[in-house]
């Protein structure tokens, strides 16, 4: 049982797709390879698919007198789940988040189907050492219902009425077009990115939602991503030294961000793009590196760091 196996590979997938067609032109074959393959697949895969005069092709397609290509196979290639894929699905049944997607009947049916399949791994074989302990209540019936209503609206581009409690405890109700659902691995929470009728782009924590009602209004989302206005206007620029292995640790920790890096002897300068909503969170994570990291820009973020450091200095030195 291997993950790195050609049966999952891009070439096998393209061939499977081509053998599903009963008749194709070589142009159509080339188009599928260009669309589904890697950048250079046309150079390698196409000549193995199209019949060659020296028989160097795979012999999976024949060409009739009119130049039309036909598969040598009779039936469409089946999509058989491998043991690895079935065991992965079985493992996910032990994940508490599975009940967000399946109702009790579906869950029971899937459990029966995988009864003889051993899980790929046991849930307790992996421990998240620093995940926050106030994650969302995935098995709560109200939470499950709200999640499914929001997901249905995201998929069908429907406006919904959401009533939720703000972080300051205030009840807010409004009409929103939910666009996408975001899960945070660290927070163990779901959030929904919406476009509000009155408030524009809004992010709502799923766990703060009290009720969701379908308005049956269909609305196509605009092309422009709703998260663009959350983006920082100026990237963060930090200089990280190699002291205490900070450069390596920083690049790993901030690997999730879009960034550009430059090495100069024992320091790395990193430009990094972030969401303005996350600025405070970002600031405290930067401070956690202590003096082996220096915030160079934006100036106001550097200023905020300086204020906290000054307060800390005074706390320690009785200033």
């Amino acid at each position: 049982m291997k993950i790195f196996n050609e049966v999952y590979g891009t070439y096998y997938r393209i061939v499977s797709q081509i053998l599903t067609e009963h008749a194709m032109t070589d142009k159509e074959v080339r188009e599928i390879v260009a669309r589904e393959g890697f950048r250079d697949s046309g150079l390698f895969l196409t000549k193995k698919l199209l019949p060659q005069t020296d028989s160097s092709d795979w012999g999976l397609l024949t060409q009739d007198k009119a130049g039309i290509l036909h598969p040598v196979t009779v039936s469409e290639p089946p999509h058989i789940l491998t043991a690895l894929q079935k065991r992965w699905l079985r493992s996910k049944l032990d994940d508490p988040r599975i009940c967000l997607f399946l109702d009790d009947a579906e869950l029971a049916a899937l459990c029966r189907r995988v009864a003889d399949v051993p899980p790929l791994y046991r849930t307790n074989a992996v421990r998240y050492v620093d995940r926050y302990c106030d994650g969302d209540p995935f098995s709560d019936p109200d939470y499950r219902r709200n999640f499914r209503r929001v997901l249905a609206a995201v998929k069908e581009h429907r406006v919904i009425e959401i009533e939720f409690k703000s972080r300051y405890g205030k009840m807010i109700a409004g009409r929103y077009l939910p666009r996408r659902i975001e899960y945070s691995q660290r927070d163990d929470k779901f959030r929904v990115f919406c476009t509000g009728r009155k408030r524009g782009a809004t992010v709502i924590n799923l766990a703060r939602i009290c009720s969701v009602h379908d308005t049956r209004i269909h609305e196509e989302p605009s092309e422009e991503p709703d998260t663009e206005n959350l983006r920082c206007s100026e990237p963060l620029v930090v200089s990280v030294s190699s002291e205490r292995g900070a450069d390596e640790r920083f690049l790993m920790e901030f690997a999730a961000y879009e960034k550009r890096t430059e090495r100069e002897k024992d320091r790395v300068t990193v430009r990094l793009w972030y969401d303005k909503n996350d600025e405070t969170d970002l600031l405290i994570r930067l401070l956690s590196y202590g003096p082996v990291l220096e915030i160079l820009a934006p100036q106001d973020l550097r200023q905020k760091a300086a204020e906290r450091i000054r307060r800390q200095y005074e706390l320690l030195n009785g200033g």
């Binding site: 997901l151 995201v154 996408r180 659902i181 975001e182 899960y183 945070s184 999730a256």
Partner: peptide, 8 residues
């Protein structure tokens, strides 16, 4: 439809 924050 699903996006991931703090995603390595």
């Amino acid at each position: 439809h699903f996006f991931f924050k703090h995603n390595y």
